[in-house]
Amino acid sequence: MIEFKNVTKTFGKTTALDHICLSIPKGKIIGILGPNGSGKSTLLKMVVGLNKANSGSLSIDGKNPSQETRNSISYLPEIDYLYSWMTIQQAADFVKSFYRDWDEAKYKELLSFLELKPSMVIKKISKGMRAKAKLLLSFSRNADLILLDEPLSGIDILTRDRIIETIIKDYRAGDQTILITTHEIREIEGILDEVFFIRNGKVALNGDVETLREEHGASLIEIMKEVYSNENSQW
């Protein structure tokens, strides 16, 4: 379980997270939703330990974020973090050297599932393929906690489908936790257990997705529009 208690994070004069409180249960696929600039990515980075809170506390299974908690987290950043001169195989070897939970069999299987080749050079492949390569490296580890920051952003529809399939393919329900931030809800509606709508660094609405659908008689997109109706933000 991940618990944010009254966490505030500012960057200069900008407040990214504003006394946010939320607890994320184990073993589910969780959507962190909201428009650009709502604080979603900051939230993920804090779990990984890349951002530190100005105030408040954050715990992962009762521990403070540290190298130890980091070892069981597979994090897919939104930015292109892979060395562009590397081949996919070199990037895989690189990740493998850091994490003991690397699963070679899964890596091989995902390579063909995602239609990637070990010899492909990162800088020479398309954006969609790079997105798939990032996903490949994240999912080739048997991590208990997988964090995906905007995994669908700027990706074509067919590739999106393949990415969704990859996320649920070997998912260990009840055991593994996957956090996905996105402002593109349509594609991931079907795979989320719970959602947190973030607005101005706070939780605007959260809950079990099926229950929200029942209560609102609406899809997540419609609920999201309701939640943010007072703003002119774009997503």
Binding site: D161, I191, L192
Partner: peptide
Amino acid sequence: LAQQLKVNPNTVQR
């Protein structure tokens, strides 16, 4: 079925 319908395995379980 979860893979075929592209939905969360927890939902199929339910």
